[in-house]
Amino acid sequence: MNPRSTRTATRTTGRRTRLGGLVAVGLLAALAFSSCGGDATGNEGAVNDDGSVDLSEVTLIVGDQKGGSKALLEASGLLDELPYEVQWQEFTSGPPLLEALGAGSLHVGGVGNTPPLFAAAAESELKVVQAATYGGIGDAIVVPADSEIDEVSDLEGGKVAVAQGSSANYNLLAQLREAGVAYSDVQIQNLQPADALAAFSSGHIDAWAIWEPFTSQAELEEKAKVIADGAELANGYTFQVASDAALADPATTAALEDYLAKIAEA
């Protein structure tokens, strides 16, 4: 099995083994901290007079990333089994997804280990409702195939692309610290994945700190070599995060419970 296959397999296995026991606990804990009121979610009409919820009348607005929750549900065959409508909105990374979630544009979204820390610091109105880990191996620093950079310490003075506030940003910080290189001694290029890939392909950057599936994409399409991954220094956590407004609405919460259960099953 090649490194890319190993990395992908490890991530998938880790996610499936960790989700099951966290779904109910995460959502119940979030509900305990959410208020009874809240902003409208658009699903108020799905609640019947007796308090029951007609899921066929619910629309769940989900923030996703490339190779994220939608891909997982499609691969497992569970996407067609959702009893409510899902509006998928794809984001380039976790920080803009959580910004949209905090602004009320989404009900729930999947992100890596670092964006929720910034959202919490900003006192955003959202809660973590599910967690999993793939062990951090998908977070990696890659360099061009013909690069003379062989280890993290060689990055000193070089240009490194990373989406600031992302899980890859944390991994880069941890890797530099482990190698004895100050963050200020690296020329950080704050680029989202599509722009970073273009810069990487054209030789405008020396390295790229990224996460799956972009790690595998760089290896396959650009023949990039991995000089470090997060297996030892990053926890590899991923989170499903919901807005307070979604958690305060009975109809949206009912759909969330099913959605999180499907993610766990996948």
Rank of each mutant, 00 (worst) to 15 (best):
V186K: 03
T6M: 08
V62S: 04
G236C: 08
E219K: 08
S167L: 05
G14S: 06
D195L: 09
A266K: 05
S243T: 02
E99G: 10
A119N: 00
W208M: 14
V128G: 07
G42T: 00
L19W: 12
V162K: 00
A245Q: 05
S167P: 06
A40L: 14
L220M: 09
V53H: 02
E85N: 13
A246Y: 00
L126S: 12
V241I: 08
V86Y: 02
F33D: 15
E222Q: 15
T12L: 14
T17W: 03
L19K: 11
T114P: 04
L233R: 12
P83M: 03
E212F: 10
I205V: 12
S105L: 14
V186M: 02
L79I: 13
I141G: 08
K70D: 04
P193L: 02
D249T: 02
V160N: 01
D249P: 09
P213R: 03
D54H: 10
E99A: 15
E221Q: 15
Q192K: 10
T12M: 08
Y259P: 12
G180I: 04
W88K: 05
I141R: 03
G104M: 04
G21L: 07
K262L: 09
K225N: 14
E232M: 09
K262Q: 14
T8M: 13
Q189H: 04
H107R: 01
D54G: 13
D229Y: 06
T10M: 11
S153M: 04
P213S: 10
L106Y: 02
P144Y: 00
T6P: 01
D139V: 02
Q217H: 13
A198T: 09
G102V: 01
I137V: 15
G230E: 01
T17Y: 05
G110I: 05
Q217P: 04
K262E: 08
T114I: 06
S93P: 12
L97W: 09
V58I: 12
Y134I: 02
Q65N: 14
P96Y: 00
V181P: 00
K225Q: 14
A261L: 11
A182Y: 06
S124F: 10
G14T: 00
Q87L: 13
V86K: 05
A71I: 02
I227Q: 00
A231E: 08
E81R: 11
A199S: 11
L197S: 10
A30I: 03
Q217V: 12
G230K: 03
G37F: 10
F200Y: 09
A30S: 13
P96C: 01
I205F: 06
W211A: 15
S216I: 02
R11F: 12
A103P: 02
P193C: 06
G109P: 11
E232A: 15
T59D: 04
D229I: 03
T12R: 14
G236H: 05
W88N: 07
V53K: 02
A71W: 08
V181W: 05
D195S: 10
G94R: 06
A30Y: 13
F118L: 13
A228N: 07
Y134W: 10
W208P: 00
